[in-house]
Every structure is written in C-alpha cells, then in structure tokens.
Amino acid sequence: MLLIAFLRFGPNKAAAPQHMEGRQAWLAAGLADGVLLASGSLVPTEGQGGGGAVLAHGLTRAAFEARLAEDPFVAEGVVEADVQVIDISRADPRLAFLAEGAA
C-alpha cells in the first residue's frame, strides 16, 4: 500500500518559516526510519494554491495520520493533511515492494 498526504496551506500559512527547522527534522527522521518515501511541493495550478505531499509505506492509515500529526506544519496549522491510501495491485518492478502485503 502507498499512503499519500496532500498538504494544502492552512490558516497559519504565514508561520511556515518559524516551523521550517522542525519540519525538516521531522521529514529527515521519517526518511531515516524508512517510513517516508518522498516529499515535495505541489505545483500550483490555476485556481488552486500550492502545498505539498508526503508519500509513505509500511504503516496503517491510522499510524500515518498519527505521524502526520507530529509534523510541525500540521500541528501548527501551516498545512492541513488529506490522506489517501492506494492499494497497489500492479507496479513497475522497481516499486514491487508497494504491492507486497498490507500496510
């Protein structure tokens, strides 16, 4: 399974700079743990602001949501998370691990 959190700017967007160091530490810990696969910025489209996304694997949805709650950007209202889960049934061999077992 692949878990994706789409992060849209929240009511406290202006506070992002003061929480950036904690956010970077949170991301680094998740990558080091092998739970987070990638993170990045959403490219704004007409009529929609930017934000970000975090991809994870090896967690239940509840565990991922709990981990997201510890992200300083989420905890401080800089962003709001919309979690989606993809039950991978077919994948390129490089991503076969996503189809193995249930998260």
Rank of each mutant, 00 (worst) to 15 (best):
residue 23 R to L: 05
residue 23 R to Y: 09
residue 24 Q to C: 14
residue 24 Q to P: 03
residue 24 Q to N: 14
residue 24 Q to V: 14
residue 24 Q to K: 13
residue 25 A to W: 04
residue 25 A to C: 06
residue 26 W to Y: 14
residue 26 W to A: 14
residue 26 W to L: 13
residue 27 L to E: 08
residue 27 L to W: 02
residue 28 A to D: 13
residue 29 A to V: 01
residue 29 A to R: 00
residue 30 G to R: 05
residue 30 G to F: 03
residue 31 L to Q: 07
residue 31 L to K: 09
residue 31 L to H: 06
residue 31 L to M: 15
residue 32 A to Y: 00
residue 32 A to C: 06
residue 32 A to L: 01
residue 32 A to D: 09
residue 32 A to P: 05
residue 32 A to K: 06
residue 32 A to W: 04
residue 33 D to A: 15
residue 33 D to C: 09
residue 33 D to R: 06
residue 33 D to F: 00
residue 34 G to S: 02
residue 34 G to Y: 01
residue 34 G to H: 07
residue 35 V to D: 00
residue 36 L to M: 11
residue 36 L to Q: 01
residue 37 L to T: 01
residue 37 L to V: 10
residue 38 A to I: 03
residue 38 A to N: 10
residue 38 A to E: 09
residue 38 A to P: 00
residue 39 S to T: 14
residue 39 S to M: 06
residue 39 S to L: 01
residue 39 S to D: 11
residue 40 G to W: 02
residue 40 G to F: 02
residue 41 S to I: 04
residue 41 S to W: 07
residue 41 S to F: 05
residue 41 S to Q: 12
residue 42 L to R: 02
residue 42 L to C: 04
residue 43 V to D: 12
residue 43 V to P: 03
residue 43 V to K: 04
residue 44 P to W: 02
residue 44 P to S: 13
residue 44 P to F: 02
residue 45 T to N: 03
residue 45 T to C: 02
residue 47 G to P: 08
residue 47 G to A: 11
residue 48 Q to V: 06
residue 49 G to H: 05
residue 49 G to C: 06
residue 49 G to N: 06
residue 49 G to E: 13
residue 50 G to R: 03
residue 50 G to K: 01
residue 50 G to F: 03
residue 50 G to W: 02
residue 51 G to N: 04
residue 51 G to M: 00
residue 51 G to I: 04
residue 51 G to S: 08
residue 52 G to E: 07
residue 53 A to L: 15
residue 53 A to P: 05
residue 53 A to M: 15
residue 53 A to C: 15
residue 54 V to Y: 06
residue 54 V to F: 13
residue 54 V to T: 10
residue 55 L to N: 08
residue 55 L to G: 12
residue 55 L to Y: 10
residue 55 L to P: 09
residue 55 L to R: 07
residue 56 A to Y: 01
residue 57 H to C: 12
residue 57 H to K: 08
residue 58 G to K: 00
residue 58 G to N: 05
residue 59 L to R: 00
residue 61 R to E: 15
residue 62 A to R: 10
residue 62 A to S: 15
residue 62 A to I: 08
residue 62 A to E: 15
residue 62 A to F: 02
residue 62 A to N: 11
residue 62 A to L: 14
residue 62 A to W: 00
residue 62 A to G: 15
residue 63 A to P: 09
residue 64 F to T: 12
residue 64 F to G: 13
residue 65 E to T: 08
residue 65 E to V: 10
residue 65 E to Q: 12
residue 66 A to L: 03
residue 66 A to M: 05
residue 67 R to M: 14
residue 67 R to Q: 09
residue 67 R to G: 10
residue 68 L to F: 06
residue 68 L to M: 11
residue 69 A to M: 10
residue 69 A to D: 10
residue 69 A to C: 12
residue 70 E to N: 12
residue 70 E to T: 15
residue 70 E to G: 13
residue 71 D to L: 14
residue 71 D to H: 01
residue 71 D to K: 02
residue 71 D to V: 13
residue 72 P to S: 15
residue 72 P to Q: 11
residue 72 P to W: 07
residue 73 F to L: 12
residue 73 F to D: 14
residue 74 V to F: 06
residue 74 V to W: 06
residue 75 A to C: 08
residue 75 A to P: 07
residue 77 G to A: 12
residue 77 G to L: 08
residue 77 G to N: 09
residue 77 G to C: 11
residue 77 G to H: 03
residue 78 V to H: 08
residue 80 E to H: 01
residue 80 E to P: 04
residue 81 A to P: 14
residue 81 A to K: 01
residue 82 D to I: 03
residue 82 D to H: 04
residue 82 D to Y: 04
residue 83 V to S: 14
residue 83 V to L: 12
